[in-house]
Design a protein around this nucleic acid. Structure first.
Length: 426
RNA sequence: GGAGGUGUGGCUGAGUGGUCUAAAGCACCUGACUUGAAAUCAGGCGUCCGGGUAACUGGACCGUGAGUUCGAAUCUCACCGCCUCCGCCA
C-alpha cells in the first residue's frame, strides 16, 4: 500500500507505475476523490461524536438519542466510502525505483554485470536431470507416480549437498566478521549485524498473507479453505509479518532474519515449461533473507544483500549475471528488484536462481510495522527480502557446472568441509 | 477433540454501566538537591487519524469484530491468542 499523501502529491508518478507494471488499472482521480470525501466525512463524524459525548456527559438523553441515530447514518456513509477507498488503495502497485527500466516483458530487463568464467568442457555438457538420473541422485519418475508432475526425490549425495548448502549459508550469515568483509569488498557502509536463523511456520492465515501483498494471485497458492490457511510460497511470507503492528525502536534496526523453509507453488499456467529437472517444482526448499531497516537505509541494505548473494555464488564458483528487472517484470509490491541468473551449461542458458526485492514501505504500511525514532516520532519502516539459496536450482547449477566427462560431479571447494567428499556419483 | 480459565499502556496490575480525561507500582525522560552518582523531591511519560505557524485542540483505540444502551474496559454473541487439566500424538 502507498502513502495517500504521496499519491496526492505525485499522481503522475502513480499513474505511470500503474501503466508500466502488469497490474489492474486504477483510476487515480477517483481514488483521490474518495480520499477527500473520506476525510470530510471523518471530520463531520468527529464533530458529531463530540456533540454526542457532550450530551452523554450531561445526561441529556433526548439529544443523545437523536445524535445516536445521526451518527449511525453518518457512520454507514463513512464505512461505504472507506470500503471503496481501501479497495482501490490495495490495488495500487508499488512505485518502481527511478533506475528501474520501463518495459512490459523481460526483454526490457537490464543486465548489470556478468561475473565468473563459464566452464569449458571437452565434451558436450548434459542438463542436470540427465546427470542426476544417471547417478541416482534425482528420481522424478517415482515422484511422478507418488505425487504427480513437478515433484521429485532428491537422494544420496545430492540430498547431503542440500544440507551442506544450508550449513555453508548459515555459517556466512551468522558471522559478523564475514559480513563485514563482504560489505568492505562491496564498498558499502552498512551495519554488519548478523542474521538471526529462523525456521518459520510453513502455513499461515490468508488474512496475514494478504497483508504481505502476497495472497494474490490466489491461483498460485495452495489454500485450505476449511482451515482458512495457506501454504507459504516462500519463507518471506511468514518472516515478513513477524513484526506486524509493532513500533520498533530505531536503535534495534536493522533486524535481519534468514529463514529456511519449503516453498509451495501451484505453478498455474506453466504447463509444458521446464517439466524436467529441478527448475520448476511444486515444492522446493529455500533459504531466504528478510530484513527491516530505517527508510533511509533501504537501498544500501539491498546493495548489501545483493553483495551477499554474489559472494555466495562466487564462493561456489558459479558464473552468473546480475539483472535489474524492468517495471513489467517486477512484483506488485516491489520498488526495486534484481535477479541473479546462474549459468547452466547443460541448458546453455542463464537461469534465474536468486531474486532481491526492495519493498520500501509498501508491505510495512499494510503490516503496520514502524520504526520509532529517538525523537518519539514514528514512521513506516522499510523491508527487503531476497533469496540466498533456492535449493533445486542451486543443486542444478552445481551439477551442470561441475560435471565431468565420466558423468560424475565435483563438489565445489566451499562445500567440501560440509559434505565430506570431493566428488559425488563416483 | 473435551473441560475450565484468561486477554487493560514498555512491564506488573486495579477497575463489573456514567467526572475513566484508566488507579497504583516498576521502567523511562526532564528539573531540583549533589563535586559526580545513588537516594529523595517535583513534573512529565501510549498509539493512530484530523485541525492549527505554534501554544494548543477534536476524534478513535482496554485482544479483534458485531450487538444491547442516551452512555460499555465493565453486559451479550462470535472469532483470535495465551494458560491449566483430560484425550490423542512425533
Amino acid at each position: 500500500m502507498l502513502d495517500i499523501q504521496f499519491i496526492r502529491d505525485n499522481p503522475d508518478i502513480v499513474k505511470a507505475a500503474i501503466q508500466n507494471k502488469k497490474t489492474e488499472p486504477v483510476d487515480v482521480a477517483e481514488l483521490i476523490a474518495l480520499a477527500d470525501s473520506r476525510k470530510a466525512l471523518g471530520q463531520e463524524l468527529d464533530a458529531l461524536n463530540r456533540a454526542r459525548n457532550d450530551a452523554q456527559k450531561n445526561r441529556d438523553i433526548e439529544t443523545g438519542k437523536r445524535l445516536k441515530d445521526e451518527a449511525a447514518a453518518l457512520e454507514a456513509k463513512y464505512a461505504a466510502v472507506e470500503k471503496s477507498y481501501v479497495a482501490l488503495m490495495l490495488k495500487l502497485p508499488n512505485i518502481p525505483s527511478p533506475d528501474t527500466p520501463v518495459g512490459m516483458s523481460d526483454d526490457a530487463n537490464k543486465v548489470l554485470r556478468e561475473v565468473g568464467e563459464k566452464p569449458h568442457f571437452g565434451f558436450s555438457p548434459k542438463p542436470h536431470w540427465e546427470l542426476g538420473e544417471a547417478l541416482g541422485l534425482i528420481d522424478q519418475e517415482t515422484a511422478g507416480e507418488v505425487s504427480g508432475a513437478r515433484f521429485t526425490y532428491i537422494k544420496g549425495d545430492l540430498a547431503l549437498m542440500q544440507f551442506a548448502l544450508l550449513s555453508l549459508s548459515m555459517s556466512i550469515l551468522t558471522n559478523e566478521e564475514t559480513l563485514a568483509d563482504i560489505a568492505r569488498r562491496a564498498g558499502l557502509t552498512v551495519s554488519t549485524k548478523p542474521f538471526v536463523p529462523v525456521i518459520p511456520p510453513y502455513m499461515m492465515k490468508s488474512a496475514v498473507m494478504n497483508r504481505m501483498a502476497r495472497l494474490q494471485p490466489l491461483d498460485e497458492r495452495y489454500f485450505f479453505e476449511k482451515d482458512d490457511i495457506v501454504l507459504v510460497g516462500s519463507a518471506e511470507h511468514t518472516l515478513g509479518p513477524m513484526h506486524m503492528d509493532e513500533s520498533i525502536p530505531e536503535a534495534e534496526l536493522p533486524i535481519r532474519y534468514v529463514g529456511y523453509s519449503p516453498a509451495f507453488r501451484r505453478e498455474a499456467g506453466t504447463y509444458g515449461k521446464d517439466t524436467r529437472g529441478l527448475i520448476r517444482l511444486h515444492h522446493f526448499d529455500k533459504i531466504e533473507m528478510e530484513t527491516f531497516v530505517r527508510p533511509q537505509d533501504g537501498y544500501t541494505e539491498q546493495d548489501f544483500i545483493v553483495a551477499i548473494q554474489e559472494h555466495f555464488l562466487q564462493l561456489l564458483g558459479l558464473p552468473y549475471q546480475v539483472v535489474l528487472k524492468c517495471t513489467g517484470d517486477q512484483g506488485t509490491p516491489d520498488h526495486r528488484a534484481l535477479d541473479m541468473e546462474t549459468w547452466m551449461p547443460g541448458q546453455n542458458a542463464y537461469r534465474e536462481t536468486h531474486t532481491s526485492d526492495y519493498m520500501g514501505g509498501y508491505q510495512s504500511r499494510r503490516l503496520n510495522t514502524r520504526v520509532k525514532h529517538a525523537s518519539g516520532e514514528s514512521e513506516v519502516l522499510h523491508m527487503n527480502d531476497a533469496t540466498l539459496v533456492a535449493m533445486g536450482r542451486m543443486l542444478a547449477a552445481i551439477l551442470e557446472n561441475y560435471q565431468q566427462a565420466d558423468g560424475t560431479v565435483r563438489v565445489p571447494r566451499a562445500l567440501r568441509p560440509f559434505l565430506g567428499k570431493d566428488v559425488i556419483g563416483a
